[in-house]
Structure formats: C-alpha cells, structure tokens
Design a protein around this nucleic acid. Sequence first.
DNA 1: CTGAAAGCGCTTACAG
DNA 2: CTGAAAGCGCTTACAG
Lengths: 357, 357
Amino acid sequence: MSSLNSSGHRGTRTTRSSAPSSIQDVADLARVSSATVSRALRGLPNVSPATRQRVLAAAQELHYIASPSASSLASGRMSTVGVVTPYISRWFFAEVLSGIEQVLQEARFDLVLYIDVDGKLFQSLPMKRRVDAVLFLTLPSDTPDVAGVAALGVPVGSLGVEIAGFSSVSIDDVAGAEMAVNHLIGLGHRRIAMVTLENDSALEFATRSDRATGFHAALDRAGISADPALIVKGYSSVEGGEAAAAQLLSVPERPTAIFVQSDEMAMGVLHMIRRAGLRCPEEISVIGFDDHELSSVFDLTTVAQSAFQQGAQLARFVLDQILLGAGPQRKQMGTRLVIRGTTAPPAEARAFAYSET
Amino acid sequence: MSSLNSSGHRGTRTTRSSAPSSIQDVADLARVSSATVSRALRGLPNVSPATRQRVLAAAQELHYIASPSASSLASGRMSTVGVVTPYISRWFFAEVLSGIEQVLQEARFDLVLYIDVDGKLFQSLPMKRRVDAVLFLTLPSDTPDVAGVAALGVPVGSLGVEIAGFSSVSIDDVAGAEMAVNHLIGLGHRRIAMVTLENDSALEFATRSDRATGFHAALDRAGISADPALIVKGYSSVEGGEAAAAQLLSVPERPTAIFVQSDEMAMGVLHMIRRAGLRCPEEISVIGFDDHELSSVFDLTTVAQSAFQQGAQLARFVLDQILLGAGPQRKQMGTRLVIRGTTAPPAEARAFAYSET
DNA sequence: CTGAAAGCGCTTACAG
DNA sequence: CTGAAAGCGCTTACAG
C-alpha cells in the first residue's frame, strides 16, 4: 500500500478517477485510523471535533463514499427495504409506492422494487438477505406462502390486511363501502348493484370481501334484500368495469345505482353506460372508491382514501422496527365521501318528491 | 468454529432458524471446501457432477442463500440496477418502470427505485457504489449534473434523450408530432393549437421541444403559419391540461383543433372543453399522445407509443453492457396513429364538403 | 478520544 | 476437479 503521500495534496489522487477511494485512503490523508474515519463519518460520538473536521475534509477531497456491501457485511444492516406489489400502473399502488419511497428516501434507505402479479414471487422470495424489511402491498392467499414471508426474519409490513406479527396500514373497507351505499340509499335507491373484484390471482385482496361486507351491511340496515343478480365480479381495470357494467345493464330489472369497488373500474362502468345510451346520473347512478386523480374529470362520486399516506405510514412503521427495535404497529386510516355528479336520486323518486342531497 | 457435526444430519442445524446458514455450513455438510460450494452453486465449470449434487443437496437442506453483501464485496458485482424517475403515477413512467422491472427480474437483478421530481437527487446521487448501472427516465437539464452521472463509473441508460456514452431508447417525437398534426391538417384544420409542457423543473424532458418541432414542421409543410397565441404551456397532468385549454378557449379566434403533448393532459383539455359547453369533435378536435389506458374510454384520438417496451429495451441495453461488456446502444421505437372519436373535420369544412376519414 | 485487530461471508487467482 | 489462502472494504468490541 502506498500511503502517506500527503505531499501531492489534490494532485495524483483525485485525477485517477478509476478506482473509488477506500476508507483507508481517507484515513491516510487525515492521518488517523480507518476506525476513526468510520466513526467520524457516521456521526458517532467519541471523536474530537478537530479530528472529525480533518476526516470530513479528507473524505470530501477524495470523494469518498463508503462501499455499501462492505458496510452491510460488517454491520449486518442493509439500509434497504423491499416492496412487493402486484401492479405499478394502477392508481392505488402507484400512490402507495410513492408514499413509501418518499419516507424511505428521507431516511436514506433504498427501496428495492418487486412486481409480482400472480404471487409466484412468494415461492422464491428474491429479497432474502437483501433487505432490512419487506412491505407487501398484497399478500398471497396461500397460508404456507405467508408463513414463508414471516420466516424471512425481518420486519414485515402489509397493506390492507392485518396479519399477526406484521405491521399494517389499512382503511376500514367495511365502513367505506357502507358510507357509499348509504349515500345511494339516502338518495332513494333500492335496486343497488355492486361491482366487486374478480378473484383473479393467487394474491389476497382483502378489500374485495370487506367492501362486499359493507355493501350488504348497509342494505340490511335499510331493510333492502340484496339481489344476487346485481352483484358482479370484474377485473381490476377499466375493461373489467366495462364488462361488469355490460352484465348489469342486461339484467331484466336494471339497477338504479351501482357501487363500484374502484374508481378505475367505475370509469369503465361509466363508459359502458354511455355506450348503452343511458344517462348518468339521470337514469343510473354510479359511485366509486379511491378518488383517483381522474375522478374529478369524470365527475365521479366516490369514497376517497389517501393511498400515498397509507404507503408513507407503513414505511414509517417498519422503519421504527428496524431503527428503534419497535414492535409491529398497525393503523387504520380514514375514508371520506366525495359527492360529485354521478349520483342522484333515482328516476322514480324524482317524479314524486325532493330528496336529501 | 464447531464444524464436522455430520452426525445430527437434519437435527440441530435446521431447527435453529436464527442465523442463516453460511457457505461454510454448506461446505461442512457436503464435505468440500467453501470454494467448491461457491463454484457448484453458481454453475461454474470444473465441478464434478457428483460433487455438485452433494453441494446442491446440502444447500437445499440448510436453506442456504448466499449473502448478497458478501458476494458483492468479493466480486465487485451488485446485481442491481438503479432507476431514477420523476414520477411513478404518470402513465408513461409507470409503464416504462414495469418494462424495466420485468427484464431485470428475469435476469435476476434487483431494481432500486429513486423518485426525483425536481432533479435534486443529481447532487447526491445516492446510488453511488450501490448499483451496476443506472437508468434515467429523465435527466437534469444541468450539464454539470449530467457529467456527474457519467462519473458514476457504471453503464448509464437514458430514456427519451440520446447522450454520448449512454445507452438510450426513445421514440421519434418529431415524427410522432408531425403525424398527429398531419392528421388534423388532413381533416381540414388550419387553426391548430398545441399544448406543450411547462418547463417546470430542473429535469430535461426532451419530448417537449421535439414534439413542438414536429408541430411546426407539419404546419410549415402545409403552408400554415403558426399563431403564437395558439401555443400554450401546461403542467404534465390533467389539471395542467385543463388550465391550458381554458387559456386556448379564450383566444378571440378559437382554434378548431388542439394537439396535446400527452393523453393525460388531453383528458384535462376534453374536460375543459365540455365544461365550456363546446362539443368535441363537432366544434373542436383534440388529439393526444401516448395511448394511455384510459384513452379509449375518452374515445381520444392519439399517437400511440409503447412505454413498456421502451423500458424493457433500455433495461436490456444496460444488461448487455454489464453482463457482456457491450458498448452503449441506442434505439428509436415506433409510434402509431390511433384514430378515435375526438378528431373530425372542422365545422366550416363540413358545411362544404366531405373530407377523408 | 483513538487504534490494532478480528471478523463479516463470500470470490478468485493460484497450486496441485 | 479441488482446496488453501488472500482479499474485498468496512464495523465493532476491546484496550489503552
């Protein structure tokens, strides 16, 4: 090792941009040991101000950046969180991911992204030994797979579904759905349909059943018996909404209102309604769920949730576990009814009387 | 080190699920050296079939997964690619990211995600020494910042803009914009407006100027002089489109057609047109750019591009650089006119004659 | 407040 | 085909 060339100050070293400088280079320049460099640079105590200054200056001069693999190997910390999501281009997941990323970036953690549509990832779990925690925006419906996740040996966060031992953030899907359906009932609707999620993959979307529960609860409380013909499943996309709407519109006694599981699907529903020559909300009301960025453009009444905040909160929870050794935490976030123009009293009701807004 | 306890075969070892097993554990169980384990598990040559089998079996029994930090430190390879994007919930970026992720996942590379709206990330470049390559879905407009990126010392890929030394994938924005405007001209439009991107950040959206170039080229060729009042800027969002449309609709001599830089902005434009009580395409035509998932719902005529394929291709390019030592490659992908219902001949033209579709 | 030394768990020439 | 050994570049008790 050729060290101690404190003569050529910023000459030879800086120009040879090939190999990045090591902690030893910094130590040599600052005339301390690598242990001290490590402490000084990480802001640990027990370093005299003067020494710290010298180290900082040396590090800066050499453009020193600690090798992440070396420090991970030595410390056992990866400063990385894995995130598993089924989609990235659906509003909800994109927003959640953005929230997670913001919190992690502030904490100077890296976010490793895994997209997994069909739950196959759970068999290999490529994030093994790579991350300090994993966030699942969806979980496999398979119990053994979930057990495998727990066996990762790192804090786990799950979105939308509470699992023993995992941190989680969710919304009250039951209450949200009830709120939506109560709004329709309050307008005078009795024949209310629901578009729910197709059980299309190995993944667990807890929201599916919970929102259906809220739907039924609201109807029950109003003394309305649910018509099975008015409950249809669709894929979580605009096309899924279109297909579901086509099905609903062909039911002999058409519904006067439709509660749709997501705004994206609701947009498909609106599209199909328009194509069928029907007018919304005059002839049929539609309410969605999410408050998607485009919902205002569609003038869509919906149940708003903040996906971004949910992601941010979930990231904070696992960060607490990693950094502070906290236990798993859970939180349920609020939803809010956003009344726009796709809901109105049913045609018959209007003929008779005024209704509440 | 207590090794050689080959007696309790699957007893003691497997049950203590605390510390993950190391390469040495596997070596002990298979009665070979750790060097051989390393070779056998990575599929390297010079390992006898019998030995390889024994190692594989031992590794499986111990649920062995190599420590990424240790192997990175020893080999110098991170098996990770960094991706920097300004947004994640915009259609284009979400699609590109999906394409990148798919290719990386197949190659068993990790994707580290960095969201950077305002280009600040380029001052710290947190992916230093963490990744084998970086993909920029956008670049800072600052030349020194770009130089800093090049100094990362790893292959770099850039999307939408060609930079010396970087791999890149883009579309021919000029040609795409010309195609859009030619479509409008062919329909008989002469007063054609353009909604372009606000120069709202430190980031370089090359598409901005290129599409404007195509717009002007098409007008020039048709002998139409562009009216500066018909070229407005807006933020890259639905709201941005609304604001831009509001401005355009207040121009004394209204345009008969609008070419909008992105479908998302076009949706805002359509919304504003509707709110202004105008009919599209009867009174004003609109053409977008992207072929967003929702464009068919809006019946929006647009210039289609495959963002997913662009992302996948860019990932393959840098993978070639990392794995095969290839040089930077570049490719321009195609665009395609998708004619839907938001474009039609201008009102005056219809009064006189038939026009082409 | 500081340093010497061990160790984190792999990979890779180098010998054989 | 296989192993001993060095080395990757840090962090962390342990002494002083």
